[in-house]
């Protein structure tokens, strides 16, 4: 069985398990949708009170919000195994069993528990995306759609990369470091506003350190066919999501180094 088919089987098992409790799954999804959707209320209230900012209207900002939330929800769906890696795999020694199987550890972790409830965030993000498309004239031609899909792919890679790093740290700390939430949930929070409203040091951090701007801000400029108010050249805008994949590649290098030094907790 090839890797993809195996992953598909993991997903099917997860889904069948959740289908045993359809009402609970549905309620959790609705709850997750509501809990994550309140952020757009805050964004709306600020724009409603203060008016446009940095050349952006609410509709345009909503496009940032929607794309970032779509990226994160998909990454969240794929990485439960990495998120609980420290607590559920390293500390318990369950990772030994994962290593014994003749398959990549990363693949097995990615297939660990695919939680349908995480689609709640995706649903509200899609609703906001539709709303944004109504509020601002976005020309959804082939190039714009392709840029959006490409940006989402880069964003998913970036968030998966962060979660792989979180799991990698567990090789040293033997627990899941929740401080990493600062990068995931905090990253979503930061990237749902246009980059040019932030002070320079924070813009640099979000471009070169944790390249959230490369998967959200620059591609959105390309989708809206606007030049960058900060002066990045036009040709760069659609290429920026590559940074997400570069981040993921670096994360997996760190992951390999972590596995190489893994010593079982011995339980």
């Amino acid at each position: 069985m090839n890797a993809l088919a195996l992953y598909g089987r993991y997903v099917v098992i997860s889904l069948r398990a959740q289908a045993q409790y359809p009402a609970a799954t549905l309620l959790l999804t609705v709850g997750h949708c509501a809990a994550t959707a309140i952020e757009i209320l805050g964004v709306f209230a600020l724009f409603d009170r203060f008016g446009p900012i940095g050349g952006w209207s609410f509709g345009e900002a909503a496009l940032f919000y929607a794309l970032v939330n779509i990226m994160f929800s998909i990454a969240d769906l794929l990485t439960r195994g990495f998120e609980v890696f420290g607590a559920d795999f390293v500390r318990t020694g369950a990772f030994d069993r994962v290593l014994l199987r003749p398959r990549a550890a990363a693949l097995q972790l990615a297939g660990h528990e695919v939680r349908l409830s995480r689609l709640g965030r995706l649903l509200q993000a899609l609703a906001v995306l539709i709303l944004a498309s109504r509020l601002v004239p976005i020309d959804w031609d082939a190039a714009a759609v392709a840029t959006a899909v490409w940006a989402v792919a880069g964003g998913v890679a970036l968030f998966v990369g962060i979660l792989v790093l979180q799991a990698t740290l567990a090789f040293w700390t033997v627990e899941s470091l929740e401080v990493v939430n600062v990068l995931t949930y905090g990253g979503v929070q930061a990237a749902q506003y246009p980059l040019n409203i932030y002070p320079a040091w924070f813009r640099r951090l979000l471009t070169f350190g944790l390249p959230l701007a490369c998967v959200a801000y620059y591609p959105v400029l390309a989708i809206l066919k606007r030049p960058d108010p900060l002066g990045a050249p036009d040709w760069l805008l659609p290429l920026a999501p590559l940074a997400g994949f570069a981040f993921l590649a670096l994360s997996f290098l760190a992951w390999r180094a972590g596995i190489a030094r893994y010593a079982s907790t011995g339980s």
Partner: peptide, 14 residues
């Protein structure tokens, strides 16, 4: 930072 940005645009509305 988000608040400061909005205040920078139109502080009178706050």
């Amino acid at each position: 930072m988000v608040f400061a940005a909005f205040y920078g645009v139109h502080a009178a509305a706050a």
